[in-house]
Amino acid sequence: MVKVGIVGGTGYTGVELLRLLAQHPEVKLTAITSRKEAGTPVADMYPNLRGRVDLAFCTPDDARLTDCDVVFFATPHGVAMAQARELLAAGVRVIDLAADFRLKDTATFEKWYGMPHSCPDILKEAVYGLPEINRDKIKSARVIGLPGCYPTSVQLGYAPLFAGGRKLVDPKHLIADAKSGASGAGRKGETSLILAETADNFKAYGVKGHRHHPEIKQGLEAIAGYDVDLTFVPHLLPTIRGIHSTLYATILPEARDTDFQALFETYYAGEPFVDVLPTGSMPETRWVRASNYVRMAVHRPNDGDTLVILVVEDNLVKGASGQGVQCMNLMFGLPENMGLTHIPVLP
């Protein structure tokens, strides 16, 4: 059994981790921390876990995290890097759902997250936790920086076009038009996220620049092996869960005869959580709700030079906690899909 601790379990990604790990046949939940809620039974805060999780929240000092095999950080940015060194010294592996170990350039991290990086040496060894791209590295990693929810959908949507240095589309004029449900902002009280502001409404944000842009760029360039750039515009959907990314790319003249449907199907053949849909499909966010699946469709409107890739995922599962469990399975030699084969919830 893998002994698991969770730091910061009161948010949406924390409760998703608990939901997934409580059903995992090879996991023993040993600690979950919250300074504010210390002493409160987890099931009192999240009644959906009644009868499945009998832990109470405790302070980090009382959690004995160094006795765990792996610790998940479902915390604000900056927390994981403050505790990672002690855990690693005790032989504990670290999976961070925040941004502490995503961006390899510390100056870029400091620009977008407004804090100095306290352990650049650990950042250097951290592995970006996108299994479809970094599966072998994840298996031997001590530290995982999980991708953001938007970057997961965008990178997986574009990856087949760039893998192995392919040059099929213009790498400098990519457009990612992405939308997320309100849970992507976390469990917090902000006027912009209350029901009266989000319901019956739809809006863009971060158009001048968003912290996920450098992460997406870094990831695509690692896949391609050459410079890539894109316009990334996120939007807030009037829903709780789900991401829908509409990705655009201009096909290069020498690639006009490419069968892109076959390219995507071949690239993702055998992947347990990426489903390339039949030609002409229009994926919906509810097709993946509460699941670890990504579903995508490839379109070429009017047989022209524009490629459109539609990608849907659940931002709290494949976009966060489920992907973390997927990485954990790889790190401990377990079947990659263990504890993650839930059928999406519909309607």
Rank of each mutant, 00 (worst) to 15 (best):
N134W: 07
G145Q: 07
V4K: 08
V345D: 04
G5N: 04
P283K: 01
C327P: 02
D61C: 00
V4L: 07
G270E: 02
S245Y: 09
A159C: 13
D69I: 10
R166T: 12
V27I: 15
A74W: 09
T279Y: 02
P238L: 03
K188V: 11
H212M: 15
G319A: 07
L49W: 01
D275N: 14
Y268Q: 05
T239A: 08
S140G: 05
D67L: 09
H235Y: 15
G270N: 06
K172L: 12
N201S: 14
I133N: 01
D314L: 11
P160I: 09
T198L: 00
G91S: 10
K217R: 15
L130C: 02
F109R: 00
L161N: 08
Q83R: 11
G209S: 11
V143C: 04
L237A: 10
A56T: 14
M282V: 14
R135A: 12
K137L: 13
C58T: 15
P301A: 05
T239W: 04
V298M: 08
P147G: 06
G304W: 13
A224F: 03
V228A: 07
Y267E: 07
P214T: 06
R85F: 05
R241P: 00
L174T: 07
P272G: 08
M331N: 09
H24A: 08
L346I: 15
A89N: 09
N48S: 15
T40F: 00
K208G: 13
D257K: 13
A159F: 09
Q326L: 01
N292S: 11
A98T: 11
V274R: 00
A224G: 08
E110T: 08
S153D: 07
G165T: 08
V294I: 15
T10G: 03
T106E: 10
P60Y: 07
A320E: 07
G129K: 03
D105P: 14
A182C: 06
L146I: 12
T231M: 12
V274K: 00
F73I: 05
T40M: 14
N315I: 02
L316T: 11
R19C: 04
E37Y: 15
L220C: 09
S118T: 11
E86K: 14
V311W: 06
Q261M: 12
M45V: 14
M282G: 02
L174P: 15
A290W: 05
V308C: 13
Y267K: 00
R102W: 10
L88A: 04
A196G: 14
P116Q: 02
M45T: 13
L346N: 13
D100T: 02
A185F: 15
A107E: 12
Y12D: 00
L195I: 00
P147Q: 07
V228G: 10
L168A: 09
G114Q: 12
G14C: 01
A38F: 09
T33E: 03
K28L: 11
N48A: 14
L307P: 02
Y248L: 14
